[in-house]
C-alpha cells in the first residue's frame, strides 16, 4: 500500500484543509524560525555590504565566500549531525589538520592520489568511529571523548610531519581546478564537493530512517530507545559522519593551500560549532537543519569579508562580531524554547 510519489520533494508541501488560513503565521512552524533569523541576518549583511562598498556584491566576492569556506561548510555539516543528537565534536579541527598532513606526507612519499584520498578521509572516519564507540558504549561524555580525540589527532599530526609539507603532486593539484558556472561565476571543485556534501547531508537527515533517528535521539534519547529505534548504531554513526566530514574537509583544505601542516585548523572546531549554532541548531539537540549550518558558515565568512572591506578595522573584530552574534542567537533560541513550554 506504499505505492505513492517518489521521495525527493522536501517535507514541506502540505495541503492545508479546513480552518487553517487564520493560523498561517503559526503554520510557518517555530522550527524554521531560527533558520529564518539566520537567513535574515545574512540578507541584511549582503544588503549593508552592497550599499556600503563598491564591488561587494560581485561574483568574485561571493565566489570567494564559498571558496574560502568550503572546508568549514563540510565540517559544519558533520557537526550538525553530532549536535542534533545532543552531542559535540571538538576534534574536527585537529582531524582536518591530520587529513592535510596525511595527504601531503603520503603524496610526498610518492603514493598515488587514488590511494591517498580515501586514506585521508578514512583517518577521519576511524577517529569518528572511535569517538562514537567511546561515547555510546563506554558512556564517556561527548565533550571529553572528542577532547581526547582532538589532542590525539593533533599529536599524530606532529608525529607524521613536524614541518609544513608542500604538495606538488600534479594530479592532486589538477583536482583543485576551477569550475566555470557562467560568465564571471566560477567555483573551485572544492566548493562543488562541499555543496554535494550539503545536499547529501540534507537528504540523509530528512529522507532516511538514520536521519530521523538522529533527530529522535536529540529529542529524547530515552524516548527513542523506548520507541524501539536503533539508538546505539545511530549515535555512533553520527560521530562517524562528523569524523568523515572532518577528513574530507582536510582534503579540501589541502587542495586550497597545496600543503599539509600540523598547525592548521587550530580552533576551527569552534568555528564549526559557532556556524551550527548561528544556523539555528540547538546545542541540546533535536532541532536544526543542515541548510541552517551552511547559512551559519556564510554569515561567519561574510563578517570576515565585510571587515576586510572596511579596511581600517582590525581583523580581531571578526571574533567580537561572531561572539555577539552567537550570544544573540543563543538568547533568541532560549526565548523561543521558553515560549514553547
Amino acid at each position: 500500500m506504499t505505492t505513492s510519489a517518489p521521495a525527493g520533494a522536501p517535507p514541506a508541501p502540505r495541503k492545508t484543509p479546513k480552518a487553517r488560513a487564520w493560523k498561517l503565521p503559526i503554520r510557518l512552524d517555530r522550527r524554521y524560525l531560527p533558520v529564518l533569523g539566520t537567513f535574515v541576518v545574512l540578507a541584511l549583511m549582503l544588503i549593508i555590504g552592497g550599499t556600503r562598498y563598491e564591488n561587494f556584491l560581485t561574483p568574485a566576492v561571493i565566489s570567494n565566500l564559498f571558496i574560502n569556506n568550503a572546508h568549514l561548510i563540510v565540517l559544519a555539516v558533520g557537526m550538525t549531525f553530532v549536535i542534533l543528537t545532543g552531542g559535540i565534536d571538538l576534534s574536527v579541527g585537529s582531524v582536518l589538520a591530520l587529513s592535510t598532513v596525511i595527504t601531503a606526507a603520503l603524496l610526498q612519499a610518492g603514493w598515488p592520489v587514488a590511494v591517498v584520498l580515501p586514506l585521508a578521509v578514512g583517518a577521519g572516519t576511524v577517529i569518528g568511529l572511535a569517538h562514537g564507540v567511546m561515547i555510546h558504549y563506554f558512556q564517556v561524555q561527548p565533550f571529553v571523548a572528542t577532547l581526547a580525540g582532538m589532542f590525539f589527532a593533533r599529536g599524530l599530526c606532529f608525529l607524521i610531519a613536524p614541518e609544513s609539507i608542500a604538495i606538488d603532486n600534479a594530479s592532486f593539484v589538477e583536482l583543485a581546478t576551477w569550475v566555470q558556472i557562467f560568465g564571471e561565476w566560477r567555483m573551485t571543485s572544492s566548493v562543488l564537493v562541499a555543496l554535494i556534501v550539503v545536499g547529501l547531508g540534507f537528504l540523509v537527515l530528512h529522507f532516511t530512517r538514520f536521519g530521523r533517528t538522529v533527530y529522535a535521539i536529540g529529542g529524547g534519547e530515552q524516548s527513542a530507545l523506548l520507541m524501539g529505534l536503533p539508538v546505539p548504531r545511530t549515535k555512533v554513526l553520527a560521530y562517524v559522519v562528523s569524523g568523515t566530514c572532518a577528513g574530507l574537509g582536510g582534503l579540501l583544505f589541502a587542495m586550497a593551500f597545496r600543503s599539509g601542516y600540523s598547525l592548521t585548523g587550530v580552533g576551527m572546531e569552534l568555528d564549526a560549532i559557532a556556524a551550527v549554532v548561528i544556523g539555528g541548531t540547538l546545542l541540546t539537540g533535536g532541532t536544526g537543519f543542515v541548510l541552517g549550518s551552511v547559512l551559519g558558515v556564510l554569515v561567519l565568512g561574510l563578517i570576515q569579508t565585510i571587515i576586510t572591506f572596511e579596511g581600517t578595522l582590525s581583523s580581531w573584530w571578526t571574533k567580537i562580531v561572531i561572539g555577539v552574534l552567537l550570544l544573540i542567537f543563543v538568547l533568541l533560541q532560549r526565548v523561543l524554547s521558553l515560549r514553547r513550554t
Binding site: M1, S4, A7, A9, F207, G220, Q222, S223, A224
Partner: peptide, 27 residues
C-alpha cells in the same frame, strides 16, 4: 516517551515508515 521535536506523523510511524527507493516517503 515520544520526541516533541518531531511531527505527530513521525512519532506515530518512526521505525515503521513506508519507504521508497531507500528514502522515506513523506506523503
Amino acid at each position: 516517551n515520544l520526541c516533541e521535536n518531531l511531527t505527530v506523523a513521525e512519532n506515530i510511524m518512526l521505525g515503521a515508515e513506508p519507504r521508497v527507493l531507500g528514502g522515506l516517503n513523506w506523503r
